[in-house]
Design a protein around this nucleic acid. Structure first.
Lengths: 333, 333
DNA sequence: CGCAACATTGAAAACGCTTTCAAGTCAAAG
DNA sequence: CTTTGACTTGAAAGCGTTTTCAATGTTGCG
């Protein structure tokens, strides 16, 4: 009943050569006489032999698979990165083990361990709360780890990002230039480095440059969900804000729709600018102005960087910063 | 330089027992004297031993990883299923190798082969164009394959879905009940079984039940993209349609926004109902009415079914049909 | 024709774990 | 004090490849 598997040994026997030779032709090793190669190839074809990657992995200590830790595939920002990662991975013959972490530290550590147990050749980590424990695990990992679209205050790991501070500063400046004085900063958890260590810094910088004093009443820390954004309207208007910088597109859509539903005109009475430039920005009405990021490329470059690391190639720059932009759509004046 | 790996042999030596015993405690085999177990556990802890899953996989012929073929992670419909799959997988200690196929037959076959080479214990396939070649590969696979949110006309594989025919028929009937006579059917490629074999059938059924004759001028075959939907407006109005059933949410958002941007009032002058009930439906304005599907559950149930199959448990029903619904929002009257 | 230099090949040892099978222990039973 | 059966344990054979190293073939040249 069980389907029979044909092994390299079977091929060797049938082709009247050694396993070593079969292995060579399978792996494209040039040190095989053309006639022999042809013979082996024929047998392989006839027997429909397929190399067992697990055995290969054990023997060669390479699995050609990399682990990818993602907060949530369902989030457009991250899934865009993931797509870039997978495409480049495939290009380099790697496969991806994808696991959702919900940015839950415990889960992340656990996942990291099972990835390492599975002997992945490398790891791409997305998530903005690199705890000490996590950092320890990264360090002990013999597989290289690169962060994609995620920052670690310690900058201990190679990573691919944009310049969040500058991007947010520019976005906020834009809002200021439109005459807004009370600009809300709405983001996810302040425990995340990207929020407290980058975005907020950019926000403060823009305010300072414009001579506006920082008021933490205008900082809204919430969940990265549509609902959370939507229910922020009362607080936002109560605080007297006339504009908002938002750290996530779905959240921003919520904020905007919440405002609109409450009768607030966007952008007339309230401007909003968001951060990730996912498809969402174009789907909602008004379309959302946003910081633009090369999402796909962040993933792609991260994976490319990882291939180099896995290959022990020397890389000039461990942390690569990709360019960002500002896309004015209709949620700002 | 290379980080030293500690093997089961090291543990055995340090604990003065055999590898077999170490293996037993690692795997929770009860046939170990408590004292021995304790001793081994201590050594494992001291040496920080981590079992090598690849070696384990080779020896046991189980990898505790399943392959997942997805058209595009970036698509909200599929990523929702993927999330359900991963959660259940994790619950059962499996990992997921995720690969994007773009519903490209050649790529799918290739990916399937590398998954099989990697000895995955099972496969979840998403995609609606099961070619003969693909079907052949499924058959030859010793790992069970289940389709999630995807149909195959031949019904050769276990699958979990909703009743697309009935759902679409109901959605279209709803449109008819609102007085629409010319209802557009817009979907992705008609090569996909889900479109020509299910949705279109449901569409026709609803028309027939209402005594409306079918007109293929009202069938719009296009890409599953926002842009494609958006640019459909001229054709839609030219055809005299006053409502549309759309097979994908992003596409539907495009259709709707295209209409709105052209000055057509939705739902006043044109109603649209979509199919997948992803988050998108709530983000756009007007919110889109939709067939509702338990997206997460489809993935979750598919994975659960796969675990049973991998475990050689007998399953009563190979193809499971989950309930659907109709969610009236604001894109229909 | 003889020999160096190179091209091909195969034997066998890993790789790190699971699993089978037999052997050894031990306590309860006779 | 045996016997018996339930527990525990270890030896060793895989699992299917890769890879090293030595052996064997070939070819070119003087």
């Amino acid at each position: 009943m069980e389907k029979q598997t044909v092994t390299i040994y079977d091929v060797a026997r049938e082709a009247a050569v050694s396993m070593a030779t079969v292995s060579r032709v399978v792996n494209g090793n040039p040190n095989v006489k053309p006639a022999t190669r042809k013979k082996v190839l024929e047998v392989i074809d006839r027997l429909d032999y397929r190399p067992n990657a697990v055995a290969r992995g054990l023997a060669s200590k390479k699995t050609t698979t990399v682990g990818v830790i993602i907060p949530d595939v369902t989030n457009a920002y991250f899934s865009s990165l993931a797509r870039g990662i997978d495409d480049i991975a495939m290009m380099y013959k790697y496969n991806i083990i994808l696991t959702n972490s919900d940015e839950n530290g415990g889960k992340e550590v656990q996942v990291l361990n099972t990835l390492m147990a599975k002997q992945v050749d490398g790891i791409i980590f997305m998530g903005n709360q690199v705890t000490d424990e996590l950092r320890e695990e990264f360090k002990r990992s013999k597989a290289p780890v690169v962060l994609a679209g995620s920052v670690d205050a310690e900058k201990a790991q190679p990573s691919v990002n944009i310049d969040y501070v500058a991007a947010v500063a520019e976005a906020v400046k834009n809002l200021i230039d439109h005459g807004n004085q009370k600009i809300a900063f709405v983001s996810g958890s302040m425990d995340q480095a990207i929020n407290h260590d980058y975005r907020l810094k950019g926000y403060k910088k823009a305010l300072k440059d414009a001579g506006i004093s920082y008021d933490d009443k205008l900082v809204f820390e919430t969940d990265y969900t549509y609902k959370a954004g939507q229910s922020l309207e009362p607080a936002l208007t109560a605080a007297g804000a006339t504009a908002a910088f938002v750290g996530d597109d779905e959240l921003a859509a919520g904020v905007m729709n919440g405002l609109t539903d409450a009768g607030v005109d966007v952008p007339g009475e309230f401007e909003v600018i968001t951060s990730n430039d996912t498809k969402l920005t174009e789907l909602v009405r008004p379309k959302m102005s946003s910081i633009t990021q090369p999402l796909y490329d962040i993933g792609a470059v991260a994976m490319r960087l990882l291939t180099k690391l896995m290959n022990n190639e020397t890389v000039d720059e461990n942390t690569v910063i990709l360019p960002y932009g500002l896309m004015k759509r209709s949620s700002t004046k």
